[in-house]
Design a protein around this nucleic acid. Structure first.
Lengths: 347, 347
DNA sequence: CTGTTAGCGCGTTCAG
DNA sequence: CTGAACGCGCTAACAG
């Protein structure tokens, strides 16, 4: 554990004052070339790296932006984080991420932690914490929310059109002839889950189809939930030729339940997701879903924060998701007996 | 942007000295109950939160541990990070993560950044940076590496038995009657990739089977690579009844290539992965793979770091991966003609 | 038990 | 152009 070398050591070794070293480090003022060279040589030799904590204390900025995510290991948030990382790249800011696990108290603790670390700005990814808490934070520093419309901060929210996205899915299925469409939603505590469910209901009605509660299930965005709810749907004996899941992860679970029951996709049932996770290109068959460019959303959030930090104006462009048709959707099975049974036993 | 309230403000407001406030905050010494209550009330009222930067500067510890990961959005590293987060929970330490993207220079920059931020310890996940660089870091602070055997620091590496893991896979396949086993490896720049390939070769030979170069492909651990290499294998016309992928992500890509060609899993070809990513339970069919408990590895790394920080001794218990047999492996197709063709056209 | 005094490492005036 | 002095917010050692 060699003693840390400080700016003072460098100064002494180079025979100059600490201020001079500081100036060279930050380009704050002009310095005679010879002194500059001398100092830079010493910096190299001593392998000196400025202490960010001290810098932060001295000039009031920590050069870090707090990121409140929910579940760092979820593919969805993972990709968003990568986008944020990329968006911050090149700037001197760095992300400090903490998980809230969709739990209001934990989210509050995470925010507190980030405030204690004196982050210069905040990026919030989803979450169930009250808007008021976020408004408090926003009163103290630039804040950008992703996938969540915070009251009073709408112009600082990176939003996507969930209703429109689901609408595209439903119309796509309708064009393929589907009329018996089941739906698995997310938890109503999450805003986007509510929007997707409402979008589904609206689209169904716009198409003149009837909304059938027996075809609706409430999931929680996890694979396990998709599997469970699909299993339940299948077991209930209701008839459907298409299954719309409110996110890709549930579609993955649904896929497994269908497989277990010997139901072919898309021959017997068309299956769709939402998010277009990277891995959804690789499901069997590749999943028809709504592309969200989670990556780009994260990047956009980061860039907005940088702009805010630089004192510029927000300028948020709403994100329009688009349908990606792959191979998990197809025409209604010709053999499908109107009002008949769906179950096919695999050999 | 309300002016930040400092410990000094609290002290004045409560009519005590700053030290007293500090002592209450850290429980460093006893304080009269009435003063304590008074101070705590003021802290609440002013909504005071200590400045971690200042604390770090004052007592030399930043209470953050640097995490050098490779790709924050990869399911593999994501789960490891979640484990680290969990392992650090409860302690007053927090992770500061930076991605190296499997690029030596970026990894070095990431390390530099973390050193500048004066992290108290470091956790390194994989990577291709030279051992020497890690040894330098280890000389300055506690360091734990995951999935990588750093020369001279072996006792501080959380390792898994890659050779043994692949061996279990191969033996499992052999027991099912497979003799023509193809293999897709990872990049040779990554230590675990080398070990898995060597493990495969060793296992094949131990079983008295012959090593056939035409059944080996070199991938890069990505889904795209798994797809491409499988496609290549299929197109080459070689015969095989089982395909061993060096990780789950490539197995996912391989699954797609097989699907495209109408090759059934496991009826025509048995498929295996390595890592047991969370999503591998949900592939179609669920993937037979080697469970790595990436999550626990991360947690173990974090706990080890805490122990090191507390001045205790390492005590690393080597991790033994275990085979998880699911539904992507099965007996050799009875119709398989010895030395014959593999291709089946799906209807 | 508590207040006072020094720094931690660096940026930033302010005079030279 | 450059050095000396002060302060960022907090902890620790020292007297009381």
């Amino acid at each position: 554990m060699s003693a840390t070398v400080t700016l003072m050591h460098v100064a002494r070794e180079a025979g100059v004052s600490p201020s001079t070293v500081s100036r060279i480090l930050n380009g704050t003022a002009n310095v005679t070339p010879d002194k500059r060279e001398r100092v830079e040589a010493v910096i190299q030799r001593l392998n000196f790296t400025p202490n960010v904590q001290a810098q932060a204390l001295a000039n009031g900025r920590s050069f870090s932006v707090g990121v409140l995510t929910q579940n760092i290991s979820s593919p969805f948030y993972g990709e968003t984080l990568a986008g944020i990382e990329r968006g911050l790249e090149g700037s001197s800011y760095h992300p400090l991420v903490v998980s809230g696990h969709w739990h209001a108290e934990q989210e509050q603790q995470a925010l507190d932690l980030l405030m204690r670390r004196r982050v210069d700005a905040m990026i919030v990814l989803g979450g169930v914490i009250a808007d008021a808490a976020l408004q408090d934070v926003a009163a103290r520093m630039p804040l950008v929310a992703v996938g969540r419309d915070v009251r009073g901060l709408t112009e600082r929210c990176v939003l996507i059109d969930n209703r429109g996205g689901i609408g595209q899915v439903v119309r796509h299925l309708a064009e393929l002839g589907h009329r018996d469409i089941a739906f698995i939603s997310g938890l109503e505590t999450q805003q986007d889950a509510v929007e997707r469910r409402e979008g589904f209901e609206a689209a169904i009605q716009e198409l003149g189809l009837s909304l059938r509660p027996e075809l609706m299930r409430r999931g929680d965005y996890t694979e396990a939930s998709g599997e469970r709810d699909t299993e339940d749907l299948l077991r209930s004996g209701v008839t459907f030729t298409a299954l719309v899941c409110a996110n890709d992860q549930m579609a993955l679970g649904a896929r497994l339940a269908l497989y277990r029951r010997g139901v072919s996709v898309p021959e017997d049932v068309s299956l769709t997701g939402f998010d277009d996770l990277f891995s959804s290109r690789y499901t069997t068959p590749p999943l028809t879903t709504v592309h969200q460019a989670v990556n780009e959303l994260g990047q956009q959030a980061a860039e907005t924060v940088l702009r805010l930090l630089a004192g510029e104006l927000p300028q948020m462009t709403p994100y329009v998701p688009r349908l990606i048709v792959r191979e998990s959707t197809g025409p209604v099975p010709p053999s499908f007996p109107a009002g008949g049974l769906l179950m096919h036993d695999s050999s």
